[in-house]
């Protein structure tokens, strides 16, 4: 059987974490895994729907990245949203560890990459997105 490599979708603030991830070369362990970045004008925009949709589409993990907010409260608001969404995931039978918010500032590509590697390691142990398993069974 093929070794499981998780797909990670990252929502990132275009001002804080926007361009760093790709510029800072991802480590080897990340190459096999798939990282896709969706930039937002501000993390304040994110809500549970975006995260749930990512899982519904088959993501194995979702990372939300942003830092010292240009709009003052974006990060704090996102934190609340993500906490709430983790509870929703639990109710849906998706491990909340698959969702993480990391504070990343401009020019901190390394922090971002470490976070990606961290979540990949965790999700490798968890296995594929349970929604996809259910889909296949149906």
């Amino acid at each position: 059987m093929k070794k499981f490599e998780p797909t990670v979708i990252a929502f990132s603030c275009m001002f804080c974490a926007g361009c760093e991830p790709v510029a800072a070369k991802p480590e080897k362990s990340m190459k096999a895994a798939q990282l896709k970045v969706i930039r937002l004008h501000c993390l304040g925009k994110i809500n549970s729907m975006h995260v749930l949709k990512a899982f519904e589409n088959g993501a194995d993990a979702v990372l939300v990245a942003g830092g010292a907010c240009r709009f003052m409260e974006g990060l704090a608001v996102a934190q609340k949203q993500i906490e709430y969404t983790r509870k929703l995931l639990e109710e849906l039978g998706i491990e909340p560890q698959r969702l993480e918010l990391v504070p990343v500032n401009q020019a901190e590509g390394k922090t971002f990459n470490e976070a990606v590697e961290g979540i990949i390691k965790r999700v490798r142990a968890l296995g594929p997105n349970p929604l996809m398993k259910a889909k296949k069974a149906a």
């Binding site: 937002l40 004008h41 304040g44 925009k45 809500n47 409260e73 974006g74």
Partner: peptide, 19 residues
Amino acid sequence: GCGICVSACPRRAIELKHC
């Protein structure tokens, strides 16, 4: 343009243009 109101609105009545 931070979009905080958009994610907070319980009626989904607000849209952030270009995002």
